[in-house]
């Protein structure tokens, strides 16, 4: 069933319709929060709060097709606020990332896993704003316009942040082949 229909039903108090939306989008929101915050517990808390807020604000969501964009914006904002509130950042457990175990290609899987860990470490060294812009664009495929809205800045600034993030991440990944 399409998002818009589920949103209209959920707005009317249908929690089952809302649960379908939660199941559909908890994964991407969780992974965005996880890579923003580098902590599983924090990431899950953010996702829970985002969906609970979504449930409360459904009556105010004017465009029923804009639900996913709203989720990305809310998740990004909540992560950035959390990071700003707790600076300087305590190093969290990004290492708790479980290794991918692709059947039949253990060696390659191990290397990809190590590369992912290296990328995770490099992500931590970006500014939170660069990290948000880069993740939204390169991992979640959101538009520049949407990212500008989600991070409260201009599209030009978004492009600049992504460029700087990409340069820094590429430098960190260069030792890998």
């Amino acid at each position: 069933m399409d998002d818009a229909t589920l949103v209209v039903r959920a707005r009317g108090g249908d929690s089952r319709a809302f649960e379908v939306l939660v199941r559909r989008y908890q994964g991407p929101m969780y992974r965005l929060a996880l890579h923003m915050l580098a902590g599983r517990g924090d990431a899950e808390d953010v996702v829970q709060e985002v969906f609970l807020t979504a449930w409360r604000r459904l009556p105010q969501l004017r465009d029923d097709t804009a639900f996913l964009g709203w989720l990305y914006r809310a998740t990004t904002n909540r992560c950035l606020n959390l990071i700003r509130a707790r600076r300087p950042v305590a190093e969290a457990d990004l290492d708790s990332r479980e290794s991918a175990d692709a059947a039949g290609a253990p060696e390659r899987a191990a290397q990809v896993s190590e590369q992912l860990t290296a990328l995770g470490e490099a992500l931590k060294r970006l500014t939170p704003e660069q990290r948000a812009c880069w993740l939204l664009r390169e991992v979640h495929g959101r538009s520049y316009m949407e990212i500008a809205g989600a991070t409260g800045t201009t599209q030009t600034a978004v492009r600049g942040r992504i460029a700087r993030a990409r340069a820094q991440l590429a430098e960190a990944m260069a030792p890998w082949r």
Binding site: A100, H140, A170, A172, A174
Partner: peptide, 24 residues
């Protein structure tokens, strides 16, 4: 730089994958 970008492009998709970071 090119080498780094190629690896980055290759690995970035992994951040979106369910297997690398499953939801509890």
């Amino acid at each position: 730089t090119r080498k780094g970008l190629v690896v980055l492009r290759h690995v970035a998709g992994g951040l979106a994958s369910e297997e690398a970071a499953p939801v509890s």
